[in-house]
Design a protein around this nucleic acid. Sequence first.
DNA 1: CACGGCTCTCGACAAAAGTCAAACTGGGCG
DNA 2: CGCCCAGTTTGACTTTTGTCGAGAGCCGTG
Lengths: 321, 321
Amino acid sequence: MAIRPAEQLIHKAAWLYYAHGLRQDQVASQLNISRASVAMYLRKARETGIVNISTSTQLFTDDVLARKLEDALSLDAVWIAPENDHIADPSTEIAVLAASVFLELVKKGDRIGVAWGRTVYMIADVMSYADLQDVTVVQLCGNLGAPYSYRPDQCTMEIARRLNAKGLNFYAPLVLSTEELARALRAEPVIREQLSGVSECDLALYSVGAVDADSHLVKCGALTPSEMADLRSQGAAGVIAGQIIDAEGKVLDCSYNRRVISAELASLRAIARRLVVVQEDSKFEPLLAAIAGGLCTHLVVGARMAQRLLDHAAATTEKAS
Amino acid sequence: MAIRPAEQLIHKAAWLYYAHGLRQDQVASQLNISRASVAMYLRKARETGIVNISTSTQLFTDDVLARKLEDALSLDAVWIAPENDHIADPSTEIAVLAASVFLELVKKGDRIGVAWGRTVYMIADVMSYADLQDVTVVQLCGNLGAPYSYRPDQCTMEIARRLNAKGLNFYAPLVLSTEELARALRAEPVIREQLSGVSECDLALYSVGAVDADSHLVKCGALTPSEMADLRSQGAAGVIAGQIIDAEGKVLDCSYNRRVISAELASLRAIARRLVVVQEDSKFEPLLAAIAGGLCTHLVVGARMAQRLLDHAAATTEKAS
DNA sequence: CACGGCTCTCGACAAAAGTCAAACTGGGCG
DNA sequence: CGCCCAGTTTGACTTTTGTCGAGAGCCGTG
C-alpha cells in the first residue's frame, strides 16, 4: 500500500453504490475519481467482504425430500443439492451450497470449529468473503504433514481468511507413534486449552471420511492400507476429525484412536450447530455412523445421497415396527 | 400470477447468477429462457430479499467521534452520518444508514419492537428487502388515526413487509379520553398480552419526539399545542413510543401519560438492543433524556448532533469533577 | 366464443459496468 | 539526484446488463 487511500475510499464507494444505489459515474463524480477507479474499488469491496452478496438457500430446503429427511433423522435442517440432468459438476454444486449455508449459519461473535479434508477445503475455496472481525475459527484436530493443500491448518486458515476472522491453529501432529506420547501431549497446557476450547464453539463444520485405502489418513501416511483394512474389520465405519468411529458413531476402541490428538466427540456434540457436508456417494455408511452418533444437526448432501438416507431410514423404522 | 413459474425460477436464476457467478446469458441458456427474463428475475430476487446485498456500516463507527461517544455515554455502538460539505440530504443519509444498521442488528428468530414517527417510517422506506420468515415485528404502542403515512401500524407493517416477517399489530388507540378507560383497556387480555410481549423482544427501533407544537402528538390531535406547552413547563423533555418523558428519561407524571396505551419504559429497557435514530438537530434535549433514561444502547445520529452530545458530556463530567 | 385484462416473454436498443494497457505518482535506494 | 518499482489512476474500448414496447398465452366474463 503506497499511502492507503484505499480502505476509506473503498468503503465510501461501496456505500454510495450499494446502499444509496448511485451509478458508478455518480459515485465517481462525488469522490472526484474516475469511473474506472470506482469499478475497481467496488470489486475490492466485494472481494474483501465489505459488501456482502448472499442468496437465500431456501430453494434447497424447500424440497419435500429435505423435509422428510429432517423428520426421519431428526436433524435441524437439511439442504439437498440437485444432481439430475445437466448440473455440470455435482460435487462443486454441493460445495457452493455448503459455503452459502455455512455463511448463513455464522453469526457475529461466533467461535467456529473446522475439521479438514478435501470437502472442507473445497468449501473454503468457493466461499465468498465476509467481514466478521469478531469471529474465531479454531482447528478441531491435530495437523498432518500432507502434500495436499487441504491440511488441517490450511482449512482453518483459509476459512478464517475468507471471513476476515481470527484463526486459531493447533500446534500438534494429528497422530503420534505411541499412546504414551499422545497422552503426555494432550496433558500439555497449550494443547489442553485448545481441546477444551472446542466445546465452546457455536458452530462446527466438517465432512466425514470413508474407511478405505483412499482415505486421507492413508494417503498422508497416518495409517497403512492394511491397518485401515484391519480397522474396518474391527467395526470402523467412518472418520470424523481424524478419529475412527464405529457404526454407532462412537470412538472405536483401537490403538490408532488413542494416538490421535483431536477434539473429543463429546466436545463436538456440545456444539449447538454441527454442519456436516458430504459430497461423495461412497460415504453413505460413514455418514450414517456420524448421524447415529449425533454428530450432525445440519446436513448438506446431494440428491442421490438424500434418497438413500431416506430409504434406509424408512426400511429401519419398518423393520422396527 | 398466470401459472407461477416465478418463485422457483427466480430462486434458480439468483442462485446461478449470484452464487455460481454465471453471466446472465449463461443463466438464460441453462434455464431455457431469454436473457431479458433472467434480468427481470434477478431484479425480483433483489426486490424480494431472495438475494441480500449489504454493505458494512463499519465506516460510520470507525470515526473517533463515534468511539468517544460510546465511551462518554456508555453506549454499545454509535454510528455517525457525515453532514459536512456536499452530502445532498443529511436526513436521508441518516435514514439509509439506520436501515443498514438495523438490518445488521437483526438476527434470525428475533422479535423486534417498532415504534412510530416520521423517522421510523423513513427508515422503513429506504430499507432493503430481506427474507427472514422467522422474525416477528411487534408494534410498541397504540394507534393514532393520523392522516400521515407513518401511523404506528403502518410503520410496523412496512418493516415487517420489507423483512418478509410476521407483523403483529396493536389494536388499541394510543390515547384515550379518560384514565379509567385506559386502565380498563390495558387490563384486556389481548392488550395485556401484547404489552407483556414487548419485553421479550430482542431488538427495538425507535426515534424520539420533541415536546413542541410540531410534535406528531399535536399534529395528530392527541394533544393541543397549549397542553403540550403545559407539559413542557411541567418538565417534559421528549416523547418515546407515544409517552412523555422528563429530562431523566422517566415517565412524566401527568394525565396524558396515564391515558396512553403503550409499552412501559421498563419493558423497553428489558430489550437487549435498543436502536435509537435521531435525524433532526432540534431533538437534542429529547435525545439526552432518552439516553439518561437508559432507553438507548445503539445510536445513529448525524455528525453535528454527535458533536453536541460529546461536548455536553464533556461539560457535565468537568462540572462534576 | 369473442373480448378485454392480465401477466409473462422476448428481441432490440440504450445504458452501465468491466477491462486493459498506458501514464502517473511518491517513496526507497544506489 | 535520478532511477526504478509497486501500486494507482485513467481514457478508450468491449462486454454485460437494464429496459421498453410488442406479442403471446391464459383466464374469467359478457
